[in-house]
Amino acid sequence: MTISRRQLLLTTTAALAATAVARSAFAGLPTLEVKDTYKVGFAQTESNNPWRLAQTNSMQAEAEKRGWQLVYTDAAGSAAKQVADVNSMIAQGVDLIFLAPREEIPLIPAIKAAKGAGIPVILLDRNVDQSLAKAGEDYVTFIGSDFIEEGRRVAEWLVNNKPGGGKIIELEGTAGSSPANDRKEGFDTFIADHASFEIVASQTGDFARDKGRQVAETLLQAHPDADVIYAHNDEMAIGAISAVEAAGKVPGKDVLILSIDGGREILQLVIDGKVAAVCECNPRFGPKAFDTAAAYANGEDIPGKIINPDNFYDASNAADLIDTAY
């Protein structure tokens, strides 16, 4: 019997695939042995904003505190570079990889490659497509904020602190992005149960200050009775302040402004009384991430999703907490 090249190729591929499937089915997650110190990788997605910088600083500070060696890479906003970054970490033989995946699907091969090399992966702040990779099988766990909960907490604060009810203008984030969808869902669902509140307009401001300002100007003009503006991030909230002032109203008095993210600039505005309340989206992943890694090495049970706790700021605590804001 002669074997053609094609047959050979097919059988080898099939055999390889079978081995891979078998390995992933039987081997499960790679384990992490208990050591005094580890060499871990952190594949950051980009560093062009204060939130990302705060996240990186938190990871580096925690590594230093524990005396672990941290291999840090910055993908500069490119999923392709991030895959290459992870591969180079595998080549350097790190013990564990912290990955902030830029996109849901393109990073899957990197996660599988790490698993194949026996290196556990912990995802930070963004998740991957759950139909292609699962927590507890392909990666250890996902650590991040609960965007729905952030929106709900803002709504809850509003209902508790504005007993008379109100008319709300909502400035949404970039259409289709998960923080925009979830922050809207959490807020809108809570508000729907309180009849004295009404969302009179909800439009996208693209998470940007200039766009947020223009949209807020227009909506305030069309709905002059609106007395609450809920923005999906700090930048749009700051744009909304200019819009409220341009309309001859006083932010904080005539119009309550609510935001999510909680950077230092917005906290100063809370202290100044222009912004009423902000739910933080916590960038300080270091302690939680390294704790989880240590717990995993000890063989503890790790849940598939770990929520990084967010602070909540309003006039009562902003002045005390501004030094801790990013």
Binding site: Q214, E217, T218, Q221, A222, H223, P224, A246, A247, G248
Partner: peptide
């Protein structure tokens, strides 16, 4: 159809934008 369209502030918003 647009509420509060006839006002100085509407003119202001549109001109500045």
């Amino acid at each position: 159809i647009t509420p509060n369209f006839l006002s100085v502030q509407t003119l202001n918003v549109n001109l500045t934008q």
